[in-house]
């Protein structure tokens, strides 16, 4: 135990928490924005899978991580708009649209990977891990001054470009939601669409913008998975991060800061799991921790919410 604690109190451990949290943060931001617009996108998992695949493939074929990233973002946005089309135009239950995207995101990406890379011969499994070299990945960034700070420098510096983006986007998304007309419209549409449309705000357009934003975030998340977290795409590599993000959104009270902190909690749990296996414990014992924490978190969140409602009721009664 003491041994474990010693291992945890290292900068490397904190560094890994941040790294592991990055894709969850992207997905959480995606969940937050659509929720603000009044609906749920449970297809984040599938969107990230598609983005991860297209990112790694385009990076390989263009020999440029930059174009890979762009492709991942485009994939995320286009697929999310397709989701919007089914949900808003054809009136498909948005939850079912999400399920369909997740289904396709699992086997469908493998199909595309096999077809595009022609790796079908004799291999039941395919991945792009063999294609992506370090130079085709999104680069890590060393921050000159900060990296020399003892302990903290090692925690903060040396991360992947997209890891910094993840935290930057927490700020940017928050600004978008609370400081721009677009954000105001998104929040208005989510809370009272009648109020929004009564003053000329197009509810439909705002919903499309919101789902496209969630696609963009999933594009980042997917690109991070296949071009930073791992070198290359492999089957089911997103491993439930899209679902965890839904929980992080709820636990974080639907806000960017809260969502980020919740994502970091999951990151911590996962990093802990990795450490467990490093000291010889079964990683399978640690791996379910983030999922269990999610359920517990949701319960606590629900209890607090119910209490609040009760208090408001009795307050209204007391006024008289």
């Amino acid at each position: 135990m003491a041994n474990l604690l010693k291992m945890l109190a290292t900068p490397e451990f904190f560094w890994s928490i941040i790294r592991i949290s990055a894709p969850i943060i992207f997905a959480t931001l995606a969940a937050i924005v659509v929720e603000k617009a009044g609906f749920a996108n449970i297809g984040l998992e599938g969107l990230m899978m598609f983005a991860a695949l297209s990112g790694s493939l385009v990076s390989y074929y263009t020999k440029s991580w930059f174009w890979g990233l762009i492709a991942a973002l485009l994939t995320g946005v286009l697929m999310s708009l397709l989701m919007g089309f089914f949900a808003f135009k054809l009136k498909t239950d948005i939850i079912l649209v999400g399920i369909a995207i997740n289904m396709m995101g699992s086997g469908g990406t493998l199909f595309l990977c096999k077809v595009i890379t022609n790796l079908t011969e004799g291999k039941p499994m395919a991945s792009t891990t063999g294609l992506i070299t370090k130079s085709l990945c999104i680069p890590d960034i060393n921050i000159p001054l900060i990296s020399s700070i003892p302990f903290l420098g090692k925690v903060i510096s040396g991360h992947n470009l997209l890891t910094y983006f993840a935290f930057l986007f927490c700020l940017l998304t928050s600004i978008m939601l609370y400081k721009t007309p677009l954000g105001l419209n998104i929040r208005a549409v989510g809370e009272n669409p009648n109020a929004a449309s009564s003053v000329g705000v197009s509810v439909l357009n705002i919903k499309y913008v919101a789902i496209a934003f969630s696609g963009l975030m999933c594009g980042f998340g997917g690109a991070f998975m296949s071009m930073a977290y791992a070198q290359g795409w492999s089957l089911d590599m997103v491993a439930g991060r899209g679902f965890i993000a839904l929980a992080a959104q709820a636990m974080g009270g639907g806000e960017c800061l809260g969502g980020m902190l919740s994502a970091l909690v999951f990151g911590f749990a996962q990093a802990l799991g990795i450490k467990f296996s490093a000291i010889g414990l079964d990683s399978n014992l640690a791996s379910p921790i983030p999922y269990a924490i999610t359920i517990i978190g949701l319960v606590i969140f629900a209890l607090i919410r119910n209490n609040k409602v009760k208090k408001q009721h009795s307050a209204a009664a007391l006024k008289n």
């Binding site: 135009k89 009136k91 498909t92 079912l96 649209v97």
Partner: peptide, 8 residues
Amino acid sequence: FLFFAAEQ
């Protein structure tokens, strides 16, 4: 799945 679930 998508077309089946699509009400419209």
